[in-house]
């Protein structure tokens, strides 16, 4: 997965990126939340992991801006201050998950796996939907042809 990582603490971010690398995740790191949100649209990120308290922008503000750009965006918030207020704001603004610092790496990897599965599921159901649509078109065509054929036979009978 392609992950957008936002934290003003470079070492924290690097250790997190390195921890997720063996799972095949690719992290793109941003020390400035303002830079991150302006570059979000071009990046095609699967998930965003952001710190809460940063210069000029909070994690909640990052969450809001990104969800405005992309309502389907999955944003995970990390905070060193596990206060209820932040957690409530995170949930109410549509955060995907909320982690206290230090982050429990096992739980974070599980959450990312869930994101992966969901995306797989979405891909599958999209393919299924497309297949259904095609099937429907095929059936509809067959049905129309059958009706035509029936009509044809009926009118021939009447003539005879």
């Amino acid at each position: 997965m392609k992950i957008m990582m936002i934290d003003d603490e470079r070492d924290c971010m690097e250790s997190l990126a390195a921890a997720l690398e063996p799972a095949g995740h690719q992290a793109v790191m941003f020390s400035s939340p303002a830079d991150a949100v302006t570059q979000y649209a071009q990046g095609h990120y699967d998930v965003v992991i952001t710190d809460m308290r940063m210069p000029r922008m909070t994690g909640i503000q990052v969450l809001r801006v990104i969800r405005q750009i992309d309502p389907e965006a999955r944003v995970i918030i990390m905070t060193g201050y596990g206060d209820a207020e932040t957690a409530i704001a995170a949930v109410n603004n549509g955060a995907y998950a909320f982690f206290g610092k230090p982050v429990n790496i096992v739980e974070l990897i599980e959450v990312l796996e869930r994101v992966g599965k969901e995306q797989e599921q979405i891909k599958l159901s999209k393919a299924e939907q497309e297949r259904m649509a095609q099937e429907y078109q095929r059936l509809k065509k067959a049905h129309d042809e059958m009706i035509k054929l029936l009509d044809c036979t009926r009118s021939k009978k009447l003539e005879g």
Binding site: E9, D11, P102, V103, I105
Partner: peptide, 11 residues
Amino acid sequence: PLQAIKLSADS
């Protein structure tokens, strides 16, 4: 710094 240390070691 503790967060960075813990993450590195745990992973």
